[in-house]
C-alpha cells in the first residue's frame, strides 16, 4: 500500500526539529524510517507531518566518554556494526547488531530509531536495558536523561513525551569482569525474534553478580527475568536449572501468529541455558 498524504519538513538543527515538531499535533520524527515508513505504507499510522532529522549534524557520532560508550541517535546499524569502539567497548550491542534485519535495512535504520520506536521484539531495546544504559532526550523544556529501566513503558510506548527527540544512548563500557551474552530465535535470519535474550553480568569468581537477563519478543516491552537473575546471582551456574524454572514466574508471553505463549516460554528456557553457558566460558 501507499502512505496517506503528509507534510514533510527537513530540520536544519536539533532546535529547528523541536520547533517543527511543535507546529503540528501528531507530528513524527523521521530518522532511518525503516519502521516508520513501513507503518505508514501499511496505513497503521498517518501523521500530519514528518520532521526529517537526517540533516541534523552531530547526531551520528560514536564516542567514548569516560567509562561509557555513547552512540548518537542517527548512527546507522551498519555504522555501529563497523565500529571498533562498539566491537571493543560495547560487545553486547556488537553481538546483537547482525541479528537486526538485513543489510539494506541496516544501512539505513538507526540506533536511536530502534530505541525510540521500542518494538517489543527488537534487539537494541533489550540490550540497552541489559546494560543498564540511559538515553538522552531533548525537547521543548530542555535536555534530560532517562535510565533504560524507566524508558520502556508499554507496547511501543516510551518515556518520550510529545515534541521530544531521543538524541543518544549511553551504556557502560565493557570491563574485564563484564560478561555478556546474546541469543535469539527467528524463523529467517534477520526477522524479528520469536524470542530473544540479551544479558549482562559481572563475573565474581566462579559465579555472576548484578545479573540483568532481558528477554524480548515475550511481552509488551523488553522484560527482565528478575527471579531467574536472583537465582543465578545466589547460586551461580549451579543454579541454572532452577533459574530456567523461575522463568515461569518471570515471563508471561502471549500466543501470537508465530508461536504459542507456551512454546515461547520453553524457548526462553533454551536461550537462557545457551546464554548462561556462553557467559560462563566466554572464550569457548
Amino acid at each position: 500500500m501507499k502512505p496517506a498524504a503528509f507534510a514533510y519538513a527537513k530540520a536544519r538543527s536539533l532546535d529547528h526539529a523541536i520547533e517543527l515538531l511543535g507546529t503540528r499535533e501528531g507530528a513524527r520524527v523521521l530518522a532511518g524510517g525503516q519502521s516508520l515508513i513501513a507503518a505508514l505504507n501499511m496505513r497503521l499510522d498517518a501523521p500530519p507531518l514528518l520532521v526529517d532529522i537526517n540533516g541534523v549534524s552531530g547526531l551520528d557520532r560514536i564516542e567514548r566518554p569516560d567509562g561509557q560508550v555513547e552512540i548518537g541517535a542517527l548512527v546507522r546499524h551498519a555504522q555501529a556494526l563497523g565500529s571498533q569502539v562498539v566491537a571493543r567497548d560495547a560487545p553486547l550491542i556488537a553481538r546483537a547488531l547482525p541479528h537486526i534485519a538485513h543489510p539494506a535495512i541496516r544501512n539505513r535504520g538507526t540506533v536511536g530509531g530502534s530505541i525510540a520506536y521500542a518494538d517489543p521484539a527488537a534487539e537494541l531495546p533489550a540490550c540497552l536495558l541489559a546494560l543498564a544504559g540511559e538515553v538522552d532526550i531533548t525537547g521543548p523544556a530542555g535536555r534530560r536523561t532517562v535510565k533504560a529501566d524507566d524508558f520502556f513503558l508499554g507496547l511501543f510506548e516510551t518515556a518520550l513525551g510529545p515534541g521530544e527527540i531521543l538524541t543518544a544512548i549511553r551504556v557502560p563500557a565493557a570491563t574485564p569482569q563484564m560478561r555478556c551474552g546474546f541469543a535469539e530465535l527467528a524463523r529467517r535470519h534477520g526477522d524479528y525474534a520469536l524470542v530473544g535474550l540479551a544479558a549482562c553480568a559481572r563475573a565474581d569468581g566462579a559465579g555472576l553478580r548484578d545479573s540483568r537477563f532481558v528477554f524480548f519478543g515475550v511481552g509488551a516491552t523488553p522484560v527482565r527475568a528478575r527471579k531467574a537473575e536472583a537465582v543465578l546471582d545466589a547460586r551461580g551456574f549451579d543454579g541454572l536449572d532452577e533459574a530456567v524454572a523461575a522463568l515461569a514466574d518471570d515471563l508471561h508471553p502471549e500466543d501470537d501468529i508465530h508461536a504459542s505463549g507456551k512454546a515461547k516460554r520453553h524457548l526462553a528456557g533454551v536461550l537462557l541455558r545457551r546464554v548462561v553457558r556462553e557467559m560462563q566460558d566466554p572464550w569457548a
Binding site: Y8, L30, G33, Q34, I37, N41, A104, N107, R108
Partner: peptide
C-alpha cells in the same frame, strides 16, 4: 543504491 549503499526503495521517501 543510495549514496553508495543498498537501501529499500519502499522504505525511503523520494523527498529525502
Amino acid at each position: 543504491r543510495l549514496d553508495g549503499a543498498i537501501v529499500r526503495g519502499c522504505l525511503t521517501l523520494a523527498v529525502q
